[in-house]
Write a protein that binds this DNA or RNA. Sequence first.
DNA 1: AAATGATCTTGATGTAGATCAATAAAGTAA
DNA 2: TTACTTTATTGATCTACATCAAGATCATTT
Lengths: 190, 190
Amino acid sequence: MVFDFFFKSISRHIKLTDEEIELTKPVLRHKKLRKRQYLLQAGDVCKVETFVIKGCLRAYTVDDKGHEHIAMFAIEGWWISDFYSLLTGSEASQNIDALEDSEVFCIEKTDLENLYLQVPKFERLFRILLQNAFVAHQQRILAGISQTAEERYKSFIGKYPTIEQRVPQHQIASYLGITPETISRIRKLR
Amino acid sequence: MVFDFFFKSISRHIKLTDEEIELTKPVLRHKKLRKRQYLLQAGDVCKVETFVIKGCLRAYTVDDKGHEHIAMFAIEGWWISDFYSLLTGSEASQNIDALEDSEVFCIEKTDLENLYLQVPKFERLFRILLQNAFVAHQQRILAGISQTAEERYKSFIGKYPTIEQRVPQHQIASYLGITPETISRIRKLR
DNA sequence: AAATGATCTTGATGTAGATCAATAAAGTAA
DNA sequence: TTACTTTATTGATCTACATCAAGATCATTT
């Protein structure tokens, strides 16, 4: 059953009763995405928070020179959205698309807000997830301002070996703020 | 009264009843810091989340070459801690100190966790603050991987004019991941 | 008031990593 | 099977920014 992975995932942080599980199911919209398919395009408004059941997605901006800059990857068990757009209702600056054939659950913003009230444990869940994101973000920022390209690349591999194996190197380059050529050269020297 | 600024600040996000305010007051430990005084030193465990009433603090790491890298500033109304250390109880990698004579409220981790249960609105408050931090962090990350030193500096000035006026330029350089010399040169060309 | 330290500026030089370009290899589609 | 696209590699060159060093200005302490 598609729900199983979702509830097993969140059980790491909150324990739901059977009734709470039943309250939650209706707000989860199951969706399949083919490789390269957009979940969100810059300029549209991001209406949903998305949980990845299977596959791999990315959120990224495109600058005026046409270069992509990856804000985040999301694999099984992770959440993804253009959070600013979702929060404020403004146009998304980020695109989100699938790097592999994927399956996700989408939750409408309003449904999520109702869920916070009906099942306050979700308020706790998202606080915890946001706490973890805070730490990860801060480490990424500090890495960006204090480490060399090589250090950041090696640390990425150490932290996210799964992602490194699944996504093309130039995507990782774009996440780290370096060029694919530089990654290639780092790899050559062992 | 020192409490006033605190409750006025958080009222932007949550409305507390008088009873809830009285429940909250006892966990706020008022503290004065002199310029350069440490609130936390790397290696110690961060036990408190801190609200800035007055003044300006910074959280930063020091690398093996002795260079400082500023994770965040905090002025009036902002919160600061080594969040990873606070969360996990591990040794702090960050130092926190005062850039000006300052006044703060410290909340013990355990007190905060009790507060989440006694006054669930605090769960909501911190979820909201963490949401805002998420957005700010992501913007800072994308700036770091997609913009030049000049673009990041100008955008910093636009976003945090107060901090730019209060804090020495080399601190801002250290926050942006550039050298003080480069900032000086950027400023010279208008 | 003198002394010490912090901050900012300016110039000379060095370098990590970007850019550009060409090729090869691997995937995917017709 | 061929054709087309995506991905990775390698070399040559360029540049944004760091590093090093010296001097000037400003603030803080005694």
